[in-house]
Design a protein around this nucleic acid. Structure first.
Lengths: 228, 228
DNA sequence: CCCGCAGTTTGTCTTGGCGCAAAGAGGCGT
DNA sequence: ACGCCTCTTTGCGCCAAGACAAACTGCGGG
């Protein structure tokens, strides 16, 4: 038993169908951990020993091509599980996870995942629902990459980031973690040069404001127009 | 009870962990159905009433952009389930399914899927394993679209088709169902013109042979070279 | 048998966006 | 305060591949 508070987990949609005792049991088996910005949580190909619940921060899931190009597969917002590929029959991690901000997580040994899923009916629907959500995201991503131009893809990426992680400031909505042009290019299958040009143009027309590693969307509506 | 033979299902990897009685039970609840080439099995957005097991033929899963561009998300080879998105929390089909060849299927009402998954432990690992496989495929697809050139993507698509559906002929390995340049362009995020040019070039150099709607890969090794 | 259509091929023109290069510019450590 | 390092901006040339156009060709149907 550890001294974690149930109030950490209770508000999460994932656990909404479980009662206090069940949450307590799951929580007691968890080990908390922290990751600094840029730290690697696990790497593609490693034996999948643990799965994680992100309590605070943002995690980036990336893949590398044999040629060394990096592609950002998705961003995990807080409150979500990651590293759960074992639930889909993998024994090794299929991608690398990097902390995109200071992160606080809980982790469990992977073999408990199978156990939790069969024991707690309500948890399994939540987990597989989350998987379904990510499958749909990936599907949309494929659609975008296959049919849209770079400008539209970048606009869409920003809108998605703003929606998932944005918080209001007096200037507009700011993306919740430090992000570079390079990062955005890796999310959209482009280059940092092209992304920089686009952001500059959008800044000139008053759609966004940006400093290094920080982007504030001042006029989401204009951005939407660039995305279609 | 219907007059289907257990030998239909027994050899499938999906059912390898089930005993004869279990297979019999599942089979008795199935209704068989056929689809002609080009027929739509279900459409994106429809209420997901049934899920399917493809016994023979090939099914193509496609998505449409708001602008009307079509993208082929994946091909289902025989022996695999499709239309199972409800297992991932969806109540409507997230994509459209079209018969890419003459197809023979079994179908079950969707609510039985939940039941099967909880009742037959062995089935659920198989089903979720298949989902995991498709997630990985999609991930690789994203990687390709984001980093590779059209030539490499087309070569990869052909290699995948050959591997999944190919059968030997005296000239080489033939793709198992009729496929057009347009189809290939929709699989790779390109245009039929560019695909046509590539295939012509490859035919000239002796890598493939093709007639309308038919492609035979005579030299897979050369194709591999184009894919990297 | 011939017509018509769906699918394919090829040519030419245009352009989005990548590669390369080099010069700013903000933040951080000492 | 200084310099370094990382991130960003911008210019220029070029090429892959899309857009447009037009001709060609099997195949199926009447």
């Amino acid at each position: 038993m550890n001294n974690l508070d149930e109030s950490l987990l209770t508000p999460l949609a994932l656990f909404s169908k479980l009662d206090r005792a069940q949450i307590r049991t799951i929580l007691d088996l968890a080990t908390p951990c922290r990751f600094d910005l840029g730290a690697t949580v696990f790497e593609e190909g490693q034996e999948a020993e643990f799965f994680y619940l992100l309590l605070d921060g943002y995690v980036r899931v990336v893949r590398l091509t044999p040629e060394g190009d990096q592609v950002i597969a998705l961003h995990i917002p807080s409150g979500h599980l990651f590293g759960i590929a074992a639930a889909l029959g993998h024994t090794t991690y299929p991608a690398t996870s990097v902390a995109a901000a200071e992160c606080v997580c809980l982790s469990w040994p992977m073999k408990l995942l199978q156990e939790f899923l069969t024991t707690y009916e309500g948890l399994s629907t939540g987990v597989y629902g989350a998987v379904g959500q990510r499958v749909e995201d990936m599907n949309n991503r494929i659609l975008e990459l296959a049919t849209q131009q770079v400008e539209q893809r970048v606009a869409n990426a920003l809108l998605r980031l703003v929606q998932q992680t944005g918080h209001k400031t007096d200037e507009g909505i700011e993306i919740g973690f430090p992000i570079t042009r390079q990062d955005i290019s890796e999310m959209t299958g482009s280059t940092l040069h092209t992304v920089s040009r686009l952001l500059s143009a959008w800044e000139r027309e008053g759609t966004i404001k940006s400093t290094r590693k920080k982007i504030v969307v001042t006029d989401p509506h204009k951005l939407v127009r660039h995305s279609t």
